[in-house]
Amino acid sequence: MPCINPEGKPTETGKKVLQALRDNGLCSAEKVAETTGVALFRVRSGLRDMIEAELVEMVEDKYNITEKGIKLIE
């Protein structure tokens, strides 16, 4: 996974994505890519993985960090 390592912890890219969501609130994948400088395809793939890991949730077509996600980057 590009954003979560096999131990279930966010990678450096994962942390960037989670921090962007924490700092900006509800965000589109495009906004996350713009804020973090991570390529859009990697953001989309990472967000998918982080939804599966319950670190991120989807609200309509945007993304939000979960409590579990916030705890992981504290």
Partner: peptide, 9 residues
């Protein structure tokens, strides 16, 4: 770079 779909691009 992880699991990727064509749609990601």
């Amino acid at each position: 770079h992880g699991k990727l779909k064509l749609d990601d691009f």
